[in-house]
Amino acid sequence: MLQRVFDSIISPSTRAFWRESRSSGQSVAEFLHGYIYMRWPYFYIAMGKGTHPLAEKMGEPLARIANMLGLWRPDSPAQGSGGFADTYHGKTIPPAAARKLITVRREITVPDLEKVIPYSMARAIILQHPDHIALLDCPCRLSEPDHCTPVDVCLIVGEPFAGFILEHHPEKSRRITQQEALDVVRRENRRGHVSHAFFKEALLGRYYAICNCCSCCCGAMKAHFAGLPMLASSGYLAQVDAGACTGCGACEAKCQFSAIRVLETTARVDTAECMGCGICELLCPSRAVSLRRAPEKGLPLEPDNLTGTAAAVAADTCSAGRAD
């Protein structure tokens, strides 16, 4: 009886999210955090960025309440320390990696990404119905009075997330195909905007979105520049072929991380600031810029390689078990 009443009141997408939350071992507080984040993303993001009219008056009391309930922990900005940066963060992905994440045809499970996503909490890719993609009007852009356009650039990937967004935000979201998602990423990258795969502890501790970010609007990028390590490098660094570089400045003009500058007619990369997003490579008219693997920057987020690694680890574990 109670179950029927619950089912009649609570929407199907909320029930689906609740079931996965409970099966993954999340607390009720973590479920509520994820529900609030997805149900009212525009209010949540604007309050977090301090751009909402109520932020100045209500920001501190809401933060205290959230901290008391364990909804977030602003206790430490250090990466991997259990602070806020662990609960919500992004992984920079070059255009090729973004295409791979979007075009996954099968359900995949990669539960342990600590070498790829150097945070202690949200670090899994568990794609259920990977072809279920919702295109959402970007909360970060809409929270800015003079924002970049277009605003429909956030891709919510897989279930139960895409279904939840579509059901609760029909006026600001729509279902799209994988090809349409590819077109969104391609257009945004051509504008010089960076693709990030986002993870959030309250959203079942896993990957749920690809956002196409600009430094003037993106909350995570603003936090990154303020010293809060909410973004992880792609695992690549840009490099310039000095002989091919014409010093045109196209890369410098579009770099969202201010990591490449033209000095004495040649572009030079600041490796400390470069996040390996690949936009400079994409937009260089003389093809003088390329990406190189940088082991010191971590491992790339590439589904094929990750699933292969996970399978190899599982096979080794089974072999060890049989040997015992």
Rank of each mutant, 00 (worst) to 15 (best):
1 M>A: 12
2 L>N: 10
3 Q>G: 12
4 R>Q: 14
15 R>V: 06
17 F>S: 02
19 R>M: 14
23 S>I: 02
26 Q>W: 03
28 V>I: 07
35 Y>A: 03
37 Y>V: 06
38 M>G: 10
40 W>Y: 14
47 M>V: 13
48 G>Q: 11
51 T>N: 05
56 E>M: 15
57 K>P: 00
59 G>V: 06
62 L>A: 10
64 R>H: 14
76 S>M: 03
77 P>N: 03
79 Q>R: 12
82 G>R: 12
83 G>I: 03
88 Y>H: 14
97 A>S: 15
99 R>A: 15
101 L>S: 10
102 I>Q: 12
107 E>K: 09
113 L>Y: 08
113 L>A: 09
121 M>S: 11
121 M>W: 12
122 A>C: 05
125 I>G: 07
126 I>G: 01
128 Q>V: 09
129 H>E: 15
131 D>Q: 14
131 D>T: 15
142 L>R: 10
146 D>R: 15
152 D>H: 15
152 D>Y: 05
154 C>F: 11
156 I>F: 06
158 G>S: 04
161 F>S: 09
163 G>V: 07
163 G>A: 06
165 I>N: 03
166 L>P: 10
167 E>V: 14
168 H>N: 09
168 H>Y: 11
171 E>G: 13
173 S>D: 14
173 S>C: 05
173 S>A: 15
173 S>T: 09
178 Q>W: 02
184 V>W: 07
191 R>H: 07
192 G>F: 05
194 V>E: 01
194 V>N: 07
198 F>I: 15
200 K>Y: 13
208 Y>C: 13
212 N>T: 07
212 N>W: 04
216 C>P: 02
217 C>G: 07
218 C>P: 01
219 G>R: 10
223 A>V: 00
227 G>V: 04
229 P>S: 11
230 M>W: 05
231 L>F: 11
231 L>K: 00
231 L>H: 03
236 Y>P: 01
238 A>S: 08
244 A>D: 08
244 A>V: 13
246 T>L: 06
256 Q>R: 04
258 S>L: 09
260 I>A: 03
260 I>Q: 00
265 T>V: 15
274 C>R: 00
275 M>A: 10
277 C>G: 01
279 I>W: 00
279 I>L: 00
281 E>L: 09
282 L>D: 08
282 L>E: 12
283 L>K: 05
287 R>K: 13
287 R>P: 07
291 L>E: 08
291 L>I: 00
292 R>Q: 10
297 K>V: 01
297 K>I: 01
298 G>P: 01
299 L>W: 00
302 E>L: 01
302 E>Y: 08
303 P>L: 03
304 D>N: 10
305 N>S: 07
306 L>V: 05
309 T>G: 15
315 A>V: 14
321 G>Q: 13
322 R>H: 10
323 A>L: 09
324 D>P: 13
